[in-house]
Design a protein around this nucleic acid. Structure first.
Lengths: 177, 177
DNA sequence: GGACCCTCCTTGAACTTTAAACAAATGGCC
DNA sequence: GGCCATTTGTTTAAAGTTCAAGGAGGGTCC
């Protein structure tokens, strides 16, 4: 299902083509990318763990909930918005519930369904910690990039994300994209 | 509690300035970034877990070792190259050792020191799985970006990485950077 | 109604990561 | 030599993530 990048007739039967290795320049790009991501992720995780008592992903969940109508979302919807599996979300919400930042509610329309609801306490935590988090993001990223670079980064990562979007996602779910 | 976005003399004593919130456009950039990274990371992790039986980070460790002088590196050095903590590395190497991909060796010069050494078996795993991994990276990233975008991405992430490099790193370690 | 398949969400076990504490060795410094 | 801070790498436990399996409801087709 992939066409050769260049000339030679590629066997159409099996996989074992000559690998399309990265050039030195591509290597450098890729390594910078992975290093940057690793360092950034760790940095933000530590910042939030210290100041908000939760990892970055969990913080992201609270943000999504805070932005949702009535501060609530179906589990599946939240999982898709946050780009995580439902399993991971189940565990995460269980933890956040224990903290009192979120609580679950049955869905009246669909007895299988669950809403995750952001509590007042959860909203308060967000209020208190958001400034510190934005500041961290700014210092690590936006303060260091020119407006053009910021724009590029957005375009580039949007392209990457689109390419990896699980095919099903949003296809039949009107509320997404 | 709203302060003007621009001029005012900033109190020099404490923290509670008006947060420098992200603009809508910055928000979009940041979210695309986080989504792209999350999806990409998961994608590569699954690809490697399936085809190589290890997470992306572990694969990265084997690569570093393969490139090192006698296929060996001191634990601390490897940890810095891979941008992970020594603790995490200890666990990772323990696991890789159990797989037979790596083995530890005492450092003759420093009795505290340990080398992580890539075994023949480990090198073989790398040989077998590298093509699949590059292909995944290509399809997810390089095939989708123009040469200019690839260049930008490299520059941008290099800047971000530099800003987060633990200050100590490389300062006194001649073998790094 | 009943068979069947799909979706929603949870669960438990295995594995990975984190954070904090620690022993041993090193390297000044006096 | 002896003292002391630092470096090296590991360990423990707790927290988070993944994977595969599963219970339960919904939807469709006959």
């Amino acid at each position: 299902m992939k066409a050769p990048a260049s000339a030679p007739a590629q066997g159409s039967t099996a996989e074992p083509q000559e690998p399309r290795w990265l050039t030195d320049e591509e290597q450098r790009v890729w390594r910078s990318f992975m290093e940057g991501v690793t360092l950034l992720d760790d940095h933000l995780d530590r910042q939030l763990q210290r100041d908000a008592g939760m990892p970055h992903v969990y913080y992201g969940l609270l943000v999504k909930l805070a932005e949702a109508p009535r501060r609530r979302l179906r589990m599946t919807e939240l999982a898709m918005l946050a780009k995580i599996t439902r399993s991971r979300l189940s565990h995460a919400v269980a933890r956040l519930e224990k903290n009192g930042w979120v609580h679950r509610e049955d869905c009246p329309d669909d007895k299988r369904g669950q809403f995750a609801v952001l509590t007042d306490e959860g909203l308060e935590v967000l209020r208190q910690t958001a400034p510190g988090h934005v500041e961290a993001v700014r210092q690590a990223v936006f303060d260091r990039l020119s407006p053009e670079q910021q724009k590029s980064l957005g375009e580039i990562m949007r392209i990457v994300a689109e390419g990896l979007q699980p095919a099903e996602a949003g296809a039949d779910l009107p509320w997404l994209r």
